[in-house]
Amino acid sequence: MSEIIEKLIFYFQYPFVWYALIVGVMIALCSSLLGVTLVLKRFSFIGDGLSHVAFGAMAVAAVLNFSNEMYFVLPITVICAILLLRAGQNTIIKGDAAIAMISVGSMAIGYLLMNVFSTGPNLSGDVCSTLFGSTSILTLTLDEVILSVILSVLVVILFILFYNKIFAVTFDENFARATGTNVDLYNLLIAVITAVVIVLAMNLVGSLLVSALIIFPALSAMRLFKSFFSVTICSVVLSMLCALTGLLTSIVAGTPVGSTIVAANIVVFAIAYTVSRILKKGEKSEKSN
């Protein structure tokens, strides 16, 4: 144990370890805030679709040799998020079909572009690190850290400011519309925030594992709590804990960062599920007595 602590103290001498921890925790915070809304709105898979869009955009940015890919990837993902949200309403191609179409289409085009116009000698490495995150969180520069923190803070502020409206839109769109809430505007806001979170989270866990970061903390929290507020708070705490544990474990043990964080989330979900089952059994036996 003391060896691990010594190792961690030694690693913390490097600024990029601090950057990874700060950005990792901020991303976990944002994704879990949004996760509850997305899971309740039955939009769990939109994260997956958008992350594939971001992968495609990243491939285009790499081919075009952009100095900072995020400035290109972010607007493209936001546009697709808005399109996907509109597709869920009244267009020719409906909800899940539109997500599947844009998702696999972007992925295929992204890989094709990376393959044909390969900019580096290690194509499989580039693709692998984009899909699974690999060590990208440990290779962030100060500029990228600042941009990530600014975007994360913006997401948190927007969520707190519009908490009541997001709550209304999440549970009953028709009721919210009837009470004069501009549902389309808030759906648009949720879409934009989702896109921002997806692009940020790709640094941490890669585009294939982004959905896990959004879904697992929300689902674990839902096993333990019932109200929207308590589920949101619990989801945030669990997500940040998992991100921190996963990051530190992967740094010490030398395991892939993204997969380790997702594994931590799976363990927490299993614990939450078991606890909820035990609590339910306890309640049932109390009632029968």
Binding site: F10, T135, L138, T139, T141, G254, V257
Partner: peptide, 17 residues
């Protein structure tokens, strides 16, 4: 040689950056 593979990769990456 005393570091995990993630850390080695990250240090070498930052040496280049």
């Amino acid at each position: 040689t005393e570091m995990s593979s993630d850390m080695v990769y990250a240090v070498v990456y930052h040496m280049m950056i």
